[in-house]
Each structure stands twice: as C-alpha cells, then as structure tokens.
Amino acid sequence: MSKKDIIICRCEDITLADIHKCLEQGYTTFEELKRILRVGMGPCQGQTCSSLIQKEIAIFLKKKAEDVLLQKTRPLVTGVKLQDIADSADE
C-alpha cells in the first residue's frame, strides 16, 4: 500500500507520506508536526494519531517509542457546545 493512502490523522486527513516528509525536513517532535500538519488538532484531539505518530518518530530517530514525547494534552476532554457552557455558567 502506498504511504499516500495510509491515513494517520483521520480528523485532518494526514497521511503517512505527509508525516515522513516532515520528519525528513527536520521536524522531529510531535509539537512541531502538530503545528505544521495540524495532526492532533482535530475533534478527537490526537486520540487516534498520537501513538501512531509517536512510533513513526521513534523509528525515524532510532529511539524507543516511550522516549518520544507526545503532544501537550489540553482541555476540553471532549467537545462541548459553547451555548451549553454559557447556560451552565449562569447557574
């Protein structure tokens, strides 16, 4: 299967080929890939792609996967409507 057909980040439609291109350009941390490619910025906030990307970085840098830092986890845990937040803020 071509790297261009392997989707790594489903929210932002980023392929394995995109990831490898960025790694070769010298962006070798998750935070850099996130800013350039938007991986981990979609509605799932990296729940699917983060461990896949962690492994790809590890292979590229010849490191153990657990030695590759993931992206910073930010609130919210799940998507919440602004109107719902506004309504409950008034309570």
Binding site: V80, K81, L82, Q83, I85, A89, D90
Partner: peptide, 21 residues
C-alpha cells in the same frame, strides 16, 4: 465561562459549535 457567555451574546449561532481545545 466568560468567553462562551460573550460569544453567545454577540454571535448566537456560533454558540451551537463545540469547543475542542
């Protein structure tokens, strides 16, 4: 809280969108 209240007041339709981060 404050952001949600302000945007729902000025741009009510945007209030129907989900905050993700």
């Amino acid at each position: 809280d404050e952001m949600a209240k302000t945007v729902c007041n000025i741009l009510p339709k945007v209030g129907q969108l989900r905050v993700i981060r």
